[in-house]
């Protein structure tokens, strides 16, 4: 029983971080219907940035979110204008293939800069835990989850209550309606894309503390993000929080009761099963292009 509760605790803590990691991809999809397959590479890139900064200045890696997120915002902004906008105008499928190319480039650059060896950021509290009765709360996981939830809340508030956030939502739902009130839809899309990458930037800083990483970790994380937004419902931010927690729980249960090796297969299995049985996900609206309004 204790083992089960412990597994659930662990799953929820990890789920918080997963939520943040997936939110960026979901935001970009919601606004411009482009799945950014480079998001996983951006995440790991941010983890490497955190690693180098941590080595250089010896600040708490979780605080480095304040540096990595804005840096990745700039990266995302430049990526939008250099690649995404052009690809988007030809064909949404082409935009997706382009981001796939970008993912490979980023992966290669990371391997050149940091090598293929496993890296990890290990602050003093990395292996400590709080104990409550017979339950353990690993400190790193706990802090990372709290930071993730705080950032998510901030992101949600930004989208919900600021002019930028509202113009993002406006541009996503009615392009002409947004232009008629003076929103420059192109700039707003760039900002939304950059914001999505910045969210991956923040997520990367957190995951660098929780998991060791290599350039090849990209594939695992992109699969994880995809499974979260497919399960939660593509384009739904609350859906991706729910999806993240469920995936994290499924992973930790699989690792605890089946075998740790099979935990990595969970996200992919979820993607295929969800798209077979309930393509709109748990909280998404149906994605049927032929069901558009007449």
């Amino acid at each position: 029983m204790t083992e089960l509760v412990q597994t659930l605790v662990f799953g929820v803590l990890v789920g918080g971080v997963y939520s943040l990691v997936a939110s960026g991809m979901n935001l970009v999809f919601g606004v411009m219907k482009v799945v950014n397959l480079a998001q996983g590479a951006m995440l790991i890139l941010s983890a490497y940035l955190t690693y180098s900064l941590w080595k250089a200045v010896d600040l708490d890696p979780l605080l480095l979110v304040l540096v990595t997120a804005p840096s990745m915002y700039v990266v995302g902004w430049a990526t939008y204008y250099l690649f995404i906008e052009r690809a988007r105008t030809t064909d949404p499928a082409m935009a997706l293939v382009t981001t796939f190319g970008l993912a490979l480039i980023t992966k290669g650059i990371m391997a050149l800069l940091w090598g293929n060896d496993q890296h990890a950021v290990t602050p003093a509290y990395a292996n400590r835990s709080f104990t409550l009765g017979s339950l353990h709360f690993p400190q790193a996981q706990l802090y990372a989850c709290l930071v993730a939830v705080a950032i998510l809340a901030g992101l949600y508030a930004l989208l919900r209550y600021t002019w930028l956030g509202q113009s993002v939502q406006a541009a996503a739902s009615s392009s002409d309606g947004a232009r008629l009130i003076g929103i420059e839809v192109r700039k707003v899309r760039a900002a939304a894309f950059a914001l999505g990458v910045a969210a991956a930037g923040a997520g990367g800083a957190l995951l660098s503390v929780l998991y060791p990483f290599t350039p090849s970790s990209t594939d695992h994380w992109i699969g994880l993000m995809l499974s979260i937004i497919v399960l939660g419902g593509m384009g739904s931010l609350p859906g991706s929080v729910l999806g993240a927690v469920l995936i994290a729980l499924a992973e930790s249960l699989t690792a605890a009761y089946i075998a740790p090796d099979w935990a990595t297969a969970v996200p992919y299995l979820v993607i295929i099963l969800v798209l077979l049985a309930r393509p709109q996900g748990l909280m998404g609206i149906r994605l049927r292009e032929d069901m558009s309004r007449a």
């Binding site: 939502q169 406006a170 009615s174 002409d176 309606g177 008629l180 309004r293």
Partner: peptide
């Protein structure tokens, strides 16, 4: 200022 023909509101807001 133009009032759009339809679908001009932002349903999520």
């Amino acid at each position: 200022v133009q009032v759009p023909q339809h679908h001009g509101l932002f349903p999520t807001l």
